[in-house]
Design a protein around this nucleic acid. Structure first.
Length: 736
DNA sequence: GGATTTTTTCTTTTT
DNA sequence: GAAAAAATCC
């Protein structure tokens, strides 16, 4: 990573960078190409405002998208501005809004101690809503519904304004409505709410708008091409009056369309703030000529981009390497070989990063690295705070902090087991519904009434009450956490199990308690709600083990904003990168985003770039699929690339989709009731199945095959009529 | 009611 | 190949 030797003052800045730092005339748009010193411009601009123009630090708000970016910005600002940097408002959109929502809870009309629901909690809530409304969970899959509600919030659409594809989607609106009611009852906000609620509050309450515009006299937004509608409106509401707005972005690096981001916001901003000045940063300080040419070759094929030409004074550098491998295991091995070679040549492990398109690709590489004893760390992925035991303990704490938090309550009510089973929970839910209150109140009422049910519930109520008392008495965070861990019986439960798995869980929980203690030592003001907010909004990297030089593994998305001397990008195959969901066509917009993502990947590299692909890839540990090289590989400038292993030619192209479909050749030879495939044999190509054949599935009943997939094991898409179209392994089907 | 075994599904990308 | 869901056993 670059060392900033001349970070102080303006000496280290080139003319456009300097203009961006010093600009003093209202709204400013900075188009900042990859590696053009964007963060440096933002931090220097903030420092300039505070040090030279006499702006108070607490009047400056700088917004980023990721916690990583926010942390880096804060760190650099502390170096530039000194202790005053502590009073700057620097944070992600979500964290900033959460902070404001708590501070202005009263004005906005929410309770200050709200819980923040992550995707899992949100889905659990939607599941309950779908059940409440007696809708079919298969049709209204909580994950899908959550996506739709999230999108509505990104577009600032209340339930009655929700956009629907057609009338058959009408239930979505009911689900959304009911969901909002239940969230309010649970005193909970989801990720989308944090922005959405803040926007609505600002747009409807002129007083609040005036106050916050006054507070944030200068507003800077990083990665503006990744803003969605709600975030755009938030920025507008805060900045429209004083117009001291600086937005920085690069339409070529817009990679969050799926999260509602609209890269046209960058252009929309220029229209709306028509007096805005535009400054383009086009000199790249990061990469070699070759790397930049390769990246440019990929991005110039994108359509509809703001014209710009990235250039560099850096040396030509070595050629890129493209490595074709037989299969994914070999790919992982060869990557590890390359890493060891680089190490032998004097590279530190912290100078090397491996990127992949999806997290699932990490496993293979991890195995090879472990086998070779190469230390590594993974950014993102299965996060520490996603582990079941961690979420359990946090759920206890959330119930303590927010009595109305039903989702957390239901999570832990019977964990560890207290004899409160499905039936009892149903009764409690009914009781809560009929009393019109929360589940906890229903439990308390049941206990007060006495009787058989009360016997099992009373200790639980006692536990929660005791914890609440400790919290009210000002117990330190870690003490509260330990009390929840020990007194809930969780500790004893794990002790009983005496398995390696239980030991690992104990270890994780102790780590969480340690983290609580550290967090409070760091910030004495931090209360329980604040801690819970932090762990929800900043899932953090997996717990850092022992220190030391480590190789970094992450998705390309996680890599945005970072740079490494050596970058290895794995899995450059069609359908892997560019990614395509099985059976879904890759639409033009999605492909464009994959292209920008590839551009992001390539532009992370300073000196060396190794791109790998595998001809065969295994999925789900079993499926085998034949891959073809990514189109992005084929687009690289030949003079800048050296090829190793299997050559990536178009000739290696996959058989056309038609060839994938088994021709309707043989008639079924099996008698009804037989299975087509011996279930111990995963290699059978599909026996006598053919398109159009009638089949029976144990659960789904009768259906007709509409497509055969020559995967291993073979699968078929089967139309079950009312049951819908499903893709199922042939081994689960029998002739009908 | 709860624990244990088996079956089934699941893979973008993140706050 | 792991996590979630379902089925089965105690």
């Amino acid at each position: 990573m670059n060392i900033e030797s001349v970070d102080r003052g303006l000496a280290g800045l080139n003319p456009p960078q300097r203009r961006a730092v010093l600009y003093d005339g209202g709204p400013l748009v900075v188009f900042a190409g990859a590696g053009s010193g964007k963060t440096r411009v933002i931090t220097h601009r903030v420092a300039h405002l505070v040090a030279e123009r006499g702006v108070a630090p607490w009047n400056v708000l700088a917004v980023t998208f990721t916690n990583k970016a926010a942390a880096e910005m804060r760190e650099r600002l502390e170096r530039l501005v000194g202790p005053g940097a502590r009073d700057l408002w620097v944070g992600t959109f979500h964290a900033t809004c959460a902070r404001l929502l708590r501070r202005y809870a009263k004005e906005i009309g929410i309770a200050r101690d709200f819980s923040i629901y992550d995707d899992g909690d949100t889905r659990a809530m939607i599941k309950r809503v779908v059940a409440d409304l007696a809708l079919d969970e298969r049709r209204w899959d909580p994950k899908y519904v959550a996506g739709r509600i999230a999108r509505a919030k990104q577009e600032v659409q209340a339930p009655d304004a929700m956009e629907l594809g057609s009338a058959v989607e009408e239930p979505l609106r009911s689900i959304y409505t009911r969901y909002e009611e239940k969230m309010r009852a649970a005193n909970a906000l989801d990720f989308g709410d944090l922005i959405y609620r803040m926007v609505v509050a600002l747009e409807t309450d002129a007083g609040l708008r005036a106050e916050l515009s006054q507070r944030f006299r200068h507003l800077l937004v990083d990665e503006f091409q990744d803003t969605n509608q709600a975030q755009y409106r938030l920025v507008r509401a805060l900045g429209a009056s004083h117009r001291q707005l600086t937005v920085v972005g690069d339409d070529d690096q817009s990679i969050y369309r799926w999260r509602g981001a609209d890269r046209r916001n960058l252009l929309a901003f220029r229209d709306e703030f028509s007096e805005a000045a535009t400054i383009k940063l086009e000199q790249n300080y990061r990469s070699t000529q070759r790397i930049l040419r390769a990246a440019n070759a990929v991005i110039t094929r994108a359509s509809d981009r703001e014209p710009k030409e990235l250039w560099t004074d850096n040396p030509e550098g070595p050629k890129l390497t493209v490595l074709g491998c037989e299969d994914d295991r070999r790919e992982a091995q060869l990557i590890v070989h390359a890493v060891e070679e680089l190490r032998g040549a004097g590279r530190g492990l912290d100078e090397i990063a491996i990127f992949y398109r999806i997290h699932a690709q990490s496993r293979g590489v991890e195995e090879a690295l472990r086998a070779a004893n190469v230390p590594y760390r993974i950014v993102g992925g299965m996060r520490f705070y996603d582990r079941a035991e961690i979420k359990d303990l946090l759920a206890y704490l959330r119930v303590v902090a927010n009595p109305a938090d039903d989702v957390s309550l239901l999570r832990i009510l019977n964990v560890p087991a207290r004899g409160i089973g499905k039936r009892s929970i149903e009764v409690l839910l009914d009781l809560a519904a009929s009393r019109g209150g929360g589940v906890y109140e229903a439990i308390a009422a049941t206990v007060a009434e006495g009787g058989a049910a009360a016997k099992k519930l009373a200790p639980f109520v006692g536990l929660i009450e005791a914890l609440r008392r400790q919290k009210a008495e000002g117990a330190p965070l870690a003490a509260l956490g330990y009390a929840a861990y020990a007194d809930s019986g969780y500790e004893g439960w794990l002790n009983e199990q005496d398995s390696p798995d239980a030991d690992a869980r104990k270890q994780n929980l102790l780590e969480l308690l340690g983290a609580m203690q550290l967090a409070q030592e760091d910030d004495a003001e931090l209360d329980l709600a604040g801690f819970l907010e932090r762990v929800t909004l900043d899932a953090g990297d997996q717990a850092e083990g022992e220190e030391g030089e480590k190789l970094t593994l992450m998705t390309v998305h996680a890599a945005k904003g970072l740079e490494f001397p050596v970058v290895i990008v794995a899995g450059l195959e069609e359908d892997t990168f560019p990614f395509r969901r099985t059976q879904e066509p890759l639409d033009v917009e999605a492909l464009e985003e994959e292209r920008r993502l590839a551009y992001v990947a390539l532009t992370r590299a300073e000196e060396r770039l190794l791109l790998t692909w595998a001809r065969v890839r295994r999925f789900f540990g079993r499926d085998v699929r034949y891959m073809t090289p990514s189109r992005f590989l084929l687009e690289l400038p030949a003079q800048d690339v050296s090829f190793a292993g299997i050559a990536p030619t178009r000739a290696a192209t996959r058989p056309s989709p038609a060839a994938w479909i088994e021709p309707p050749a043989r008639r079924p030879r099996a008698a009804p009731g037989d299975s087509y495939v011996d279930r111990s044999e995963g290699t059978d190509e599909g026996g006598g199945a053919y398109v159009g054949m009638k089949v029976r599935h144990g659960k789904l009943g009768l259906g007709r095959i509409v497509r055969l997939d020559r995967t291993s094991p073979p699968r078929a898409a089967v139309d079950f009529g009312d049951g819908g179209l499903r893709t199922i392994q042939l081994s689960y089907l029998s002739p009908a």
